[in-house]
């Protein structure tokens, strides 16, 4: 697989380390009343879709960027790659 890094261009996927669902960006509030449930769902439950999947990859053999990659889990086609930091900042602004 090739991942089209937003800064570095297409890189072989073997340079990256995979983490999982990009929902891991959305860490719950530790002081919320339902924090215990929210952290359980955050840490353990997954949509696990057969189709487009937003997921986190770390460019360990490269520039150490965390990326949010949108990849179809049935075809492996990648349709979007963004810096996770940009995604995280956007989500902060929108929430």
């Amino acid at each position: 697989m090739l991942i089209d890094h937003p800064l570095l261009g297409p890189r072989d996927a073997s340079e990256f380390v995979y983490l999982g669902d990009a929902s891991l960006i959305d860490r719950p509030d530790w002081q919320a009343d339902d924090a215990a449930r929210a952290f359980h769902d955050y840490a353990y439950l997954r949509d696990n879709p057969a189709g487009p999947h937003r997921e986190l990859w770390f460019h360990e053999g490269g520039d150490r960027s965390w990326l949010v990659v949108t990849r179809d889990t049935t075809t492996h086609e990648i349709t979007d790659v963004r810096l996770a930091r940009d995604v995280a900042l956007e989500r902060r602004r929108s929430s």
Partner: peptide
């Protein structure tokens, strides 16, 4: 499992 149990509205502690 994820696909089938989603029909019952469940999210699972599972990735494929």
């Amino acid at each position: 499992s994820g696909r089938v149990m989603a029909m019952a509205g469940m999210r699972l502690p599972i990735e494929s």
